[in-house]
Structures are given as C-alpha cells and as structure tokens.
C-alpha cells in the first residue's frame, strides 16, 4: 500500500471525529455538559482497555467505526420518527431536521462504514 493511501485513511479517521467534536463544543457553549461527559466516558473506558491490552488498536478502530455507524443510524431513525410523529416533538427539535442534519447523519454513517471496512494495516497501526 502506498503512503498517500495511508495518509488518506488517517485523514478520514481524523475527520470522522469532527461532527462529534463540533456537537460537544456547541453544547459546551450553552453550559450543557452531558454530550462531553458521555464522550469522555467512552474515551476513558476504551483508552483504559487499550492500555491494559484488553483490546488492540485494530479493535479500537473497529469499535470507533461501530460507534459512528450506530450514531448515524440513530440520527437517521430519529429524523424519520420526528417527521412522522411531528406534534409530540418540540418545535426546536422538529426544525433541526433539515438537509444539513440529514447530510451530517449520512456522512457519519458512511465514514463509519468506510472505516469499518478498512484493514488494520491500512491505518499505520
């Protein structure tokens, strides 16, 4: 495998963190710490498991890709549910379901699938 391909893979892996990072920062700006705490909990648990060599780096990447796939799917399912059961949902949430929300969900889902399908050696790990 050539070096450019490695770089591309790593770039995708890094970019896949961005949507969640932006989401966490947006909530931090409103003094809402739950998304940060939830993310930190995942990061700490998996870092400990990795440090203790209970899971390998390759498995860590796989788990991350599964998290992305799950997050993307839940966002897409929520979009459909919100649009179908409109009246019981707060307006602010209802109007967040737009083309941007949909695109971001698809991006998260596909980046997860893309990472999941790569082999361990393709990330320099």
């Amino acid at each position: 495998m050539n070096k450019d391909r490695f770089k591309n893979n790593q770039a995708v892996l890094l970019v896949s963190f961005l949507p969640l990072l932006i989401h966490v920062i947006r909530h931090l700006m409103t003094y809402s710490y739950f998304p940060l705490l939830f993310t930190l909990l995942l990061v700490i648990v998996f870092t400990i498991l990795w440090k203790l060599r209970i899971i390998t780096s390759a498995l860590l990447v796989k788990i991350w890709s599964i998290v992305l796939i799950g997050y993307g799917i839940i966002r897409l399912v929520l979009s459909v549910l919100v649009l179908l059961t409109g009246n019981s949902v707060p307006s602010d949430v209802y109007f967040q379901i737009d083309i941007w929300y949909f695109s971001m969900s698809v991006f998260v889902l596909f980046s997860g699938i893309w990472i999941f399908r790569r082999k361990k050696s393709e990330f320099y790990i």
Partner: peptide, 8 residues
Amino acid sequence: LDLFFNPN
C-alpha cells in the same frame, strides 16, 4: 435529545 440535537 442533547446527544443527537443542537441546543435550543
């Protein structure tokens, strides 16, 4: 909702 949606 905080996990999946932006703030109000």
